[in-house]
Amino acid sequence: MKQDIRDLFKDDEASGKQLPENHRQEFYDQLKASRPRRTSKLNTNYLFKVAVMVVLFMGLALIVFTTTDKVIEVIVESPIETQIDALEQQYLANIDEEWQNFISVANDEKLVNRYRDKLDDLDNDYQEVSKQFKADNNNILVIETLVDNLKTRLQLLKDIQEHINLLNQKRTL
């Protein structure tokens, strides 16, 4: 049963027919027509979503860049400044308390004015040293001067209080 395949098609009536010249073009046209049509990749919903994402990104970037400068300015305070402020508040509270005690006990207006002038001078010196500290907060000498000034004011008030107590004791005797 071996046969040559060419022999089978020799007698066939289709073998003698010629294809029309535009057969190839018609075949391609039919092939294109049978394919499903693609929709455009540029969809309006897609464009809208991209535009919204770009606007949101730009808005967030603007917010981040404008608030970053403010955050950096807030964090600049050093731990030394915080400790000095706490120490200053403690001393000033003690000084105020001693001054109020002195005023309540003192009977001599001349004595009160004299000590008020001394405390005002010390306070003015303290303000000058405080400005130096703000300009150069890493200078240990300025910090020591601040603390010494506060100690001097507090000690002055305690000395005043002691002096008044001695005067009151002498009066009662």
Rank of each mutant, 00 (worst) to 15 (best):
P20V: 04
V64C: 04
T39Q: 13
R114F: 09
L150Y: 09
P36N: 11
D12Y: 09
L173F: 06
L141Q: 10
I95D: 06
L119W: 03
Q155L: 13
L167E: 08
V129F: 08
I140F: 06
P36Q: 14
L173W: 00
K151D: 07
Q169V: 00
F57G: 14
E77L: 13
F27H: 04
A14H: 06
A86D: 11
F9P: 00
T44M: 13
D4F: 12
V129L: 12
D4K: 09
E109R: 14
I75Q: 07
V50A: 14
V64M: 10
V129M: 09
E21Q: 12
N43G: 10
Q169Y: 03
D4M: 07
S104I: 02
L111E: 08
K41M: 12
F48P: 00
T82M: 14
I63R: 08
Q90R: 15
L154H: 08
D121N: 15
K131T: 04
E21V: 11
R116L: 11
L56Y: 01
D136R: 02
K32E: 05
V112N: 03
V55G: 04
S104K: 14
D108S: 03
L31P: 01
I160D: 05
D4Q: 06
K2H: 05
H163F: 15
E88D: 13
Q89A: 15
A86R: 15
N138Y: 07
K158C: 03
V52M: 10
R171H: 02
N137Q: 05
L167I: 06
E109A: 15
K118F: 11
D69P: 05
Q127A: 12
L92Q: 15
S40Y: 01
W99M: 00
M1S: 11
L56S: 04
L19E: 05
D123G: 15
D85P: 02
D125Y: 13
E162G: 05
G59W: 02
N113Q: 13
F133V: 01
E109D: 10
L157Y: 02
N137S: 12
A33G: 04
G59V: 01
E128Q: 14
D125I: 06
Q83N: 14
V142I: 14
K70N: 05
I143G: 05
I84R: 03
Y46W: 12
R37T: 04
N113V: 00
T68D: 01
V64D: 02
S40H: 01
V76Y: 07
Q89G: 11
T66Y: 07
E26L: 11
T152C: 02
R171L: 08
D121K: 15
K134F: 08
L47C: 04
L119F: 09
L156D: 02
R114W: 02
K2W: 04
K151W: 04
T82A: 14
T82I: 13
T172V: 03
D159G: 01
T66R: 12
